[in-house]
């Protein structure tokens, strides 16, 4: 058994001291949930993981026709398809983590009501599929880099750090949403809305230097804006607006507060489901 030899449940405990121990005891459950989601996501599909390729390719084609050919957006020295694919992949991953983590508890309510395990495992286990699908997009980006003969600059070494930040920020938002949704089902309706407007409020289909200076403060309050800029800077060496610092700050605040709120209400979650 993974379970401990003895346990004390005290009404006055804050619960924080059990947290890390519990997460360690139930570490295998993280993989089991991720495996389950992966299997179920592609069960009874004919092309399975190919969906991870088809979706970005079709969206990218539409972006190219509308924004490159019709609107004639100036993507600077970086070819438009490369620029927008980095934005699209990042946004899709962020939205996936936010959506899946955000609905993880409510979708597993039948389990949460019947058995104990650290609830944090549910939203966190959603990250893995998101990463798998995002890495497919990165293969496409690598192909485009070869095609356009672009060599990533030296700052490409911080690429893993940006991937990590994207994961944490998406998870933070998801933790807030999943914990709030249990009590206020209103937040369920917020998730599709957020993922819909976010694609316009982030530099997905256009470069962020098109945003007028006076709006930049508001614009970079969106964590994803800074993340996409950072990734473009990493991969293609595009210029970096110092305002991205704002995105990092708001993103970190969302993550830390989401983590705190989730853990604080964790023990009463079953009462509201």
């Amino acid at each position: 058994m993974n379970l401990r030899r003895s346990l004390i449940i005290d009404a006055n405990d804050s619960g924080w001291k059990h947290l890390w121990r519990d997460l360690y005891d139930f570490r295998e459950l993280f993989w089991v949930f991720a495996y389950r989601d992966f299997k179920v996501r592609y069960a009874q599909t004919m092309i399975g993981l190919l969906w991870g390729i088809i979706q970005p390719v079709i969206t990218l084609s539409i972006f190219i026709v509308i924004f490159q050919f019709a609107v004639k957006i100036d993507s600077g020295s970086v070819p438009y398809p490369l620029m927008s694919l980095i934005g699209l992949g990042t946004w899709s991953y962020f939205a996936f983590v936010l959506r899946e983590a955000g609905s993880a508890l409510i979708n597993a309510s039948h389990i949460v009501k019947k058995i104990y395990f650290p609830r944090l495992i549910l939203p966190v286990s959603k990250i893995l599929i998101g990463l798998v699908e995002w890495s497919i997009v990165w293969v496409f980006i690598a192909i485009l880099l070869v095609y356009y003969q672009i060599t990533p600059p030296i700052q490409v070494v911080i690429f893993p750090v940006v991937v990590f930040l994207t994961t944490m920020f998406g998870l933070g938002a998801g933790l807030w949403l999943s914990a709030l949704t249990i009590k206020f089902r209103d937040f369920q309706h917020l998730i599709p809305f957020l993922t819909q407007i976010g694609i316009y409020l982030s530099p997905v289909a256009y470069p962020s230097n098109l945003i007028p200076y006076s709006y930049q403060f508001l614009y970079y309050l969106n964590p994803v804006a800074g993340l996409i800029d950072l990734l473009r800077w990493c991969i293609t060496g595009s210029t970096l607006n110092p305002m991205i610092g704002l995105s990092i700050i708001t993103g970190s605040l969302v993550f830390l507060s989401g983590f705190y709120y989730f853990c604080r209400v964790e023990r009463k979650m079953a009462d509201h489901l």
């Binding site: 449940i9 005290d10 009404a11 009463k268």
Partner: peptide, 13 residues
């Protein structure tokens, strides 16, 4: 079962 938390008291297992 630790599904919900008590209002008062203590349990030792």
């Amino acid at each position: 079962a630790r599904i919900t938390h008590p209002t008062t008291g203590r349990i030792e297992l």
